[in-house]
Design a protein around this nucleic acid. Structure first.
Lengths: 337, 337
DNA sequence: CTGAAAGCGCTAACAG
DNA sequence: CTGTTAGCGCTTTCAG
């Protein structure tokens, strides 16, 4: 398992190892003849450059840390896929960490990535407190926050206009005739989710609807959490004709609970999600939802990060993407009285 | 952004930097007093050990490369999640690469990981040819193949007993009265899928059923591919009462096509999947399937890899996990004539 | 155009 | 217990 080094090549080629280094790095200060000869020997010996050694002297690793709450979550894995692709195209590789939606673990992972000398970090934070928590390390390494809208925070982020997302969602439901819409699984610990709830609230106000919230105290939005919350909700008696779920995963959980409780969607109640994860498009699910442009957000995040890495003068920038209404089959028009 | 090094600490503490190194590494050859003093100074100065430098001398990076065809695929992302967790618990971090189901890109990524000096690689290969293709590099770094069953190949892998999986699946459908079962989206380029098809074929033979295959020439199993194939199938006229899909994603695609073609599942035709990805459990999907113990496979893969890394004497080992039938609602009993 | 030497941040003998 | 020295594999001055 002994690896071939630059010195081994030098010995065979009968040159100094500096020359080998130059041949490999495509330096101009070398004769084309020697270069070709050395390159050939390198190939023959099965040489692979040691990126660790290179990083040590170059003081850059060409590594981007990707820190997500859980890669096993359709939203994050879509983001991860596109981040990987964009990064690779720009010559960067990914170091992947899960925070499991846990702020301590998130901090641990962040520090670890710093120690690993990643050139930058893309972070899908687990909540609104991530920023304060990570603040001490934030000028150690360029960081871009994704998805979690941290509003006026002085750090780069890319997110969707969450407020607008729920706003247009409510307008859509309103246009279908719904006058009593519940906002489901509001998570106050996340700024993103605060904004979504607020967009919902503001739209309700503008349309003279009475807002109604079902709060979630869970740290994340999962099918399981949506299910649990919905089960309780369906057991009670409420006056509403539509549910606006804070996330598609929540909506999927609601779908599950509805099925079990004999609530038909969209016949009995309309359901609108947020995120547009790939599974929402399945015809059996067929969930109308608000799309977050994940591909775009991922590549923008990578670009922002690289820009920040290369331009130390740049402090931070915020990019807010446009959400889009995706109409499928989970919302039904209701007759007006 | 200048990082604090061991030398900076040494200067402040007024000791040699070796002493600092010793304090940090928990060596016993140092007075408890000095250690505490140095540790404190390190903390005050905001020191974080440079893992790159450490790796260079230690000749190990504590990094595991995870190479999957696409992280944006429920099966892979579940595997990835559990691999990350197991690895972290053992002090390893993950470097993530996608091959996009493309063998050239897979080779690229593999070489890249080698250059990055990862201590080991966990690979969910994109097909049966991955082994031959990667063979030249395989003794450069300990590697464990996951999911793709490479049979008698002389390299470590962990997989599910694919043959048995489809075998028990057919038995189950048979027990429900099905006598005409189509195997859907057989992929001949993948050994795993060959074995699945074979298990199906052998079960058919044992039960005196006539096997019927729908072949897929796609390089991967996705919803889209299942959908395309199924659309064509449903357009034709065939004699069958059940479909055994080569993968859950294929089954989801079939579900979609069925919906559009007015084929009711399970009323008109029963559908059985393979993998048990999380979305199959959604009540709206409610897919009966063959479970691959993904969590287990992931942690076993990590353990095998670490064992292989630590025990150079070990050549390779194969672990075959047990598949399990998960009965949900997509298969219906049919009356016997 | 090529080589010698220094050094990236850290660990590990080897002395004292 | 502590310091000196060498070296991990590579790039980069600085001479020639």
């Amino acid at each position: 398992m002994k690896r071939v080094t630059i010195k081994d090549i030098a010995k065979v080629a009968n040159v100094s190892y500096t020359t080998v280094s130059r041949a490999l790095s495509g330096s101009s200060e070398i004769g084309e003849g020697t270069r070709q000869r050395i390159l050939q020997i390198g190939k023959d010996m099965g040489y692979t450059a040691n990126a660790v050694a290179r990083s040590l002297v170059a003081k850059e690793t060409k590594l981007i840390g990707l820190l997500v709450s859980s890669i096993n979550n359709p939203f994050m894995s879509e983001i991860a896929y596109h981040v990987e692709e964009s990064a690779r195209k720009k010559g960067y590789n990914l170091m992947l960490c899960n925070s499991s939606g846990n702020i301590e673990q998130e901090e641990e992972a962040y520090k670890l990535l710093v120690g690993r000398q990643v050139d930058g970090i893309i972070l899908v934070p687990c909540g609104a407190h991530s920023y304060e928590r990570l603040h001490p390390y934030l000028d150690t390494v360029p960081t871009v926050f994704v998805s979690e809208n941290l509003r006026d925070i002085q750090e780069s982020y890319v997110t969707v206009d969450n407020h607008r997302g729920t706003y247009i969602g409510v307008e859509y439901l309103y246009s279908l005739g719904h006058r009593s819409i519940v906002y489901f699984a509001r998570r106050l610990a996340s700024t993103t989710h605060q904004l979504r709830a607020q967009g919902y609230g503001d739209a309700c106000k503008a349309l003279h609807l009475k807002p109604q919230y079902v709060d979630s105290h869970f740290a994340s939005s999962s099918i399981q959490h949506g299910y649990t919350l919905a089960l309780e909700w369906f057991r009670g008696k409420h006056n509403y004709s539509a549910i606006f779920a804070a996330a598609d995963t929540i909506a999927l959980g609601i779908l599950q609970a509805a099925e079990e409780c004999g609530v038909r969607i969209p016949e009995d109640v309309s359901l609108l999600g947020f995120d547009n994860i790939s599974f929402s498009a399945l015809p059996k699910i067929n969930l109308s939802t608000i799309e977050q442009p994940k591909h775009m957000m991922a590549s923008v995040a990578v670009e922002m990060l690289i820009e920040k890495m290369k331009t130390p003068a740049m402090r931070y920038s915020h990019k807010i993407m446009n959400p889009e209404l995706v109409i499928r089959g989970s919302c039904k028009a209701v007759p007006q009285i």
